[in-house]
């Protein structure tokens, strides 16, 4: 299954970007093969609705789970409607996050954090 991880960099040993809506980059990892590709959300420049855009892009890419630090209210709503679970980490690399997810140690984000932007 395809997992989206927000990162700062472009490989599995890059640190997780704790912001979802304005993440620098996403790693799309196939959890069966550990093969990955990158997805540039290009959302850093968007004034409004960056989280919504990013969420839609990840869904379009076919992710079935997302690992990030936090999730704003609007992106959260999009993932919830698509029934894609969000997992939270507080730091570390994408590889570490993936390993923790496999061990089922990552908490599910059950409610949006942050303020988002009105």
């Amino acid at each position: 299954m395809l997992i989206g991880i927000s990162i700062r960099g472009d490989h599995l040993d890059a640190p997780v970007d704790l912001r979802l809506g304005r993440a620098q980059m996403f790693l799309l990892v196939d959890s069966d093969t550990e093969q990955f590709k990158t997805l540039d959300p290009g959302a850093g420049q968007i004034q409004h609705g960056a989280g919504i855009q990013t969420a839609q892009m990840l869904l379009k890419a076919g992710v079935k789970a997302v690992i990030s630090g936090d999730c704003g209210p609007k992106a959260f709503q999009v993932f919830q409607a698509a029934q894609v679970p969000l997992y939270s980490v507080t730091g570390g690399t994408a590889r570490e996050a993936l390993a923790a997810w496999r061990r089922q140690e990552l908490p599910v984000i059950g409610q949006p954090g942050g303020m988002g932007h009105a």
Binding site: H48, G49, Q56, Q77, F79, A81, A82, A118
Partner: peptide, 23 residues
């Protein structure tokens, strides 16, 4: 509609469309 909305007030989630009133 999602494609059209410059303000991202509409979002596609799977085959559902969500409306964000404040946008």
């Amino acid at each position: 509609c999602v494609e059209f909305c410059t303000f991202h007030a509409l979002a596609a989630a799977g085959n559902k469309v969500i409306v964000f009133p404040d946008l």
